[in-house]
Design a protein around this nucleic acid. Sequence first.
DNA 1: AAGTGGTCTAGACCACCTG
DNA 2: AGGTGGTCTAGACCACTTA
Lengths: 258, 258
Amino acid sequence: MSTAALPLQPPPVVEPAGEAAPAFSPLYQQIKALITRELQAGVWKPGESIPSELDLAARFKVSQGTVRKAIDELAAENLLVRRQGKGTFVATHSERQIQYRFLRLEPDDGVARDMERRLIDCRRVRAPADVARALDGKSGDSVVQLRRLLLAQGRPVVFDEIWLPGGLFKGLSAERLSDYKGPMYGMFETEFGVRMIRADEKIRALAADAAVAEWLAVPQGAPLLSVERLSFTYGDKPVELRRGLYNTEQHFYRNALS
Amino acid sequence: MSTAALPLQPPPVVEPAGEAAPAFSPLYQQIKALITRELQAGVWKPGESIPSELDLAARFKVSQGTVRKAIDELAAENLLVRRQGKGTFVATHSERQIQYRFLRLEPDDGVARDMERRLIDCRRVRAPADVARALDGKSGDSVVQLRRLLLAQGRPVVFDEIWLPGGLFKGLSAERLSDYKGPMYGMFETEFGVRMIRADEKIRALAADAAVAEWLAVPQGAPLLSVERLSFTYGDKPVELRRGLYNTEQHFYRNALS
DNA sequence: AAGTGGTCTAGACCACCTG
DNA sequence: AGGTGGTCTAGACCACTTA
């Protein structure tokens, strides 16, 4: 409905100034941008289906093939999910199958089990300088800081420390977190309308300090995997900084290169 | 030339036995498989261009769009590289820009510099059980084992231990390795015709033992990133096992999630 | 100017899912 | 049966490269 008649600016075929400008935008890229705007605006909610390709083609006054190419790219970026015969759906972190979309940890014995989530604490604090910088905010901004453990078969494997912009997560509390069943990113979607689209991780090895050693039940100085993740929502806006410390004695971080 | 008239089996539309079989193969997938075969057979060498889309369409007796979709997927898998106006080229590890296609290590200060490669040794040995298993061989098979260091600004950062199937790498020696300028995977391509297509990495943190500590000039017990990589060539055939130990004091391993 | 990949269209038909 | 995404075609035109 909000995508009514739309003029679809005729492709800005040539730019006036002969600079190093984009200077050309295929129709399907424009369509893609329009669809992304609708997603961002929440016109279609995570898990819901978007209009059919023919619908969208009619709305945008382009051929089905052009809409198709736009959707293809959005599906490749994991913003949409195609299901033959059923429709195209808005991606979500709430579904069983893709529950741990961003967690690359696997047990050595290969059997993927569910992990237990145990919240340690959840506080509102003033952002330290490095956290503020990562989240595109100012030092001293209000942020939600939470810490938690992930346990496999009762044994702690991951210690997570998470920072979220206070403005986006008003009302987030230890109670609400504990009450919520399902993955954290699913909760962020449904309760706060914040959808994690992509993330960047920086990984290093470091020695456990006294506090973390206790949480993970390893000796002080034990080598741990440090995974610093910055997650982004639409428009490449950073909305979560997370630092995980992984005990990799019986698990490993998997990565596929191509 | 080897792709002459080709009958292109008419899509096996329906399978006789009503089992859980593939039972359907789009034309463009068949084309994709044919192109992959040519690549594997070395008809087109790394860095060279393949025939134009119209050429291939004529050869295969399909429309350009169908060839296009096949090539699109091969490009997405990094087997081919498209260059508008010039043609489509066989991917290679030898080009300057994509030199370290599989190395995800970055310096903290962001300035990507070239790393110095220093070979430690190169020997032919009998494969230990775990190496043989990874390479789909038998325990005791002949393998080339080599060890080397990567140095950034004169300081050792990576200690690599690499195993290669002896049969594929006849004549590989310390001399030839030292003489060769350019990345190792580039040498494998041009000297041995072995092309690395994709790889799987398992990452953990561990403490430096005495030997590695000396190579990397860190204290014994220092936390290191262990990166175990299994690389595959065409047909998902494993052709390299590599275990790298990274000093992550001034570098980190980057990974993008989506 | 000629050749290459890139975009866009319009229409046909197929495979899959649901009432 | 009707709707959805998936495949395939044939042809037009555009953008980029090279000669």
